[in-house]
Simulated assay, not measured.
Amino acid sequence: MLNADDTTLIFMPPIARTVVAMLACARLGLTDARPALVLTDARPVLVLTASGGFEGPEATEYPPLLEAALAGAAHQPRHIVVLHRPEAGRWAPVPGRDLDWTSLDAGTARQDPVHVPSAHPLHLLHTSGSTARPKAVPRDTGGCLTSLRWAVENVFGVRAGDVFWTDSHPGWVMGHSFTVYGALVGGATTIVYEGSPTDTPDASAFPRIIAEYGVGVLFSHLDR
């Protein structure tokens, strides 16, 4: 059983289920955090992860990265929920600790939203660590969603019904803020793309996505 004051760490590839996990945490009043290297600071009760993902043309296996972080952390989560993706990585579950995402999803009933105060923490984003150790920046539910709703309309010109693509991983501040919360709270359709739009599978991916999905507004951080 999770409580509204608990923190859940999300260590996932840029796929639709990552967005679902983030929104599920918000619905239940949980605070989500990332990445795995902040286990000690965030002290998550639950970790949501996958067996692997495509950050570029080649797959990256996540379990070795997560296990290394767990080995060096002063805090250990109660459970780790793993989305098994055979095409992207392998997973050898640890009995008693690891749970299968698909099995849990199949047996889950609809949960009513948990109402929280506007100042309740929505998520934690950590600094890069360039000024000593990484520091968690908490963002509250009401203020964060209000500011993002204002930004997508007044800064980016996004309207309800538009297709808005932020080509950034949901784990980074741009993708976290605008791929998920900003686009959806503004009534827009958001695009989640796994891999790099310049080399997964090739450089044609970028214009192809724009044309295929009718992207009306693109927020890009590409500098190459």
Rank of each mutant, 00 (worst) to 15 (best):
P207K: 04
Q111W: 13
M1P: 08
E153P: 08
L122A: 11
S128Y: 05
P13D: 02
A42G: 08
S103V: 14
P134G: 02
R159M: 08
D140K: 03
S204Y: 01
N3V: 12
G161Q: 10
A36G: 01
A119M: 11
V81P: 04
V47M: 02
M174C: 03
S130R: 12
G29K: 03
L46E: 05
G142C: 09
L65N: 10
L125F: 07
T190V: 01
L70P: 00
P14A: 15
D6R: 12
A188M: 00
V217G: 05
T190S: 15
L9N: 08
L99G: 07
D202R: 06
R97W: 02
P95F: 02
D100P: 13
D199W: 05
T31P: 05
P77K: 00
A205N: 05
P138D: 12
A203G: 06
V20S: 13
L66P: 05
A69N: 12
R27H: 06
H120G: 10
S204L: 08
T189M: 13
L9I: 02
D98M: 06
A24F: 04
A69I: 04
R159D: 03
V81W: 02
V94N: 03
V173T: 08
H75Q: 01
E212Q: 15
L39Q: 12
R110P: 09
G129F: 11
V173W: 08
E61P: 01
A24Q: 15
Y193N: 07
A24K: 11
D112C: 08
A106P: 02
A73F: 08
W172K: 04
T102E: 14
A106W: 00
P44V: 01
A21M: 10
S220W: 14
M174N: 12
D199Y: 03
I15M: 13
S196C: 07
P63M: 03
L23T: 03
V173E: 05
A119V: 11
F206C: 13
M12D: 09
Y213D: 09
F11C: 04
T60N: 06
T40N: 01
A132W: 01
A71L: 00
P35W: 12
T179H: 03
S204K: 10
E87R: 13
G29C: 09
P86R: 13
D112Y: 07
W91L: 07
A109F: 00
F156M: 05
P77E: 03
A33H: 04
G129W: 11
A74P: 02
